[in-house]
Amino acid sequence: MQARHLRTVGAETTTAAAQEPRRRLIDVQGLVKIYRTPDGDVPSLQPLTFDIADGEFIAVVGPSGCGKSTLLKLIAGLVPATSGSIEIDGRQVVEPPDDIGIVFQTPVLMAWRSVLRNIMLPVEVRKLDRASHLARAHALIEMTGLKGFENKFPWQLSGGMQQRAALCRALVHDPRIVLMDEPFGALDALTRERMNIELQRIHFETRKTILLITHSIPEAVFLADRVVVMTERPGAIAAIYDVDLPRPRRLSTMSEPAFIEIAKAVRSHFFAQGGID
């Protein structure tokens, strides 16, 4: 029920889409990124080819410095690719697409804005209709449990609440795609588990396409439909695992044999290479 007023565009089509095979939304073909520095070229990504379906939850795990964040910035149109292409809904990414929301490892909230005005930032910058998005912001605040904190300043909130505000900000303009760069990496373990469960619920309710970059194998397996495993720098795709565990997954899912099996398979890539972080 909540999903209906959160997804303002194409609310009727979601049920129809669920029956058909899912449409391809993000298409990455032969993506290469080489950073040119004064000390020479630093290859960051080897040719990457994969795609993400509409409404899919993809997690990317890999060792530190393997180019996971670079991949996210490429899809967000923040850095140009050296070669290869990224298409979102058939359109080449050359500048930041409108249909994307980003959550970073730190909440990066503006200290001079209240929580609500932070969440409304994309609406202001993109000059979208204020009234309808304000209603949407309030619905998101309600959904993420920030009600009552709208007029607080970021420094008056705990780390987990700040990150929830950042998530609201990423969702306020109703993008189809949400990119998350280790969003819970700076949180304590308990808060992190809670945020994982909430994120799963938000994904279920909003049907967003989510690309999550993470260090945590359990987090990746717990949340994702597919887990992309990357190699060390320059990053390439080592394997892609389908996670066909039933949803909604609970914390107890983590102790089920099927979960452990997938987590073990993902982890085996890093033990061969010398560990993850």
């Binding site: 910035k73 923040l78 970073f104 490892q105 730190t106 990066v108 503006m110 930032l121 910058v125 993109r126």
Partner: peptide, 23 residues
């Protein structure tokens, strides 16, 4: 300014003037 903050406002396609005034 935090580079992530710059990326964030850039991902919203903020103009130079907006970036200055808002960030």
């Amino acid at each position: 300014i935090d580079p992530d903050m710059r990326d964030l406002i850039r991902s919203m396609k903020a103009s130079r003037l907006q970036t200055f005034g808002m960030l």
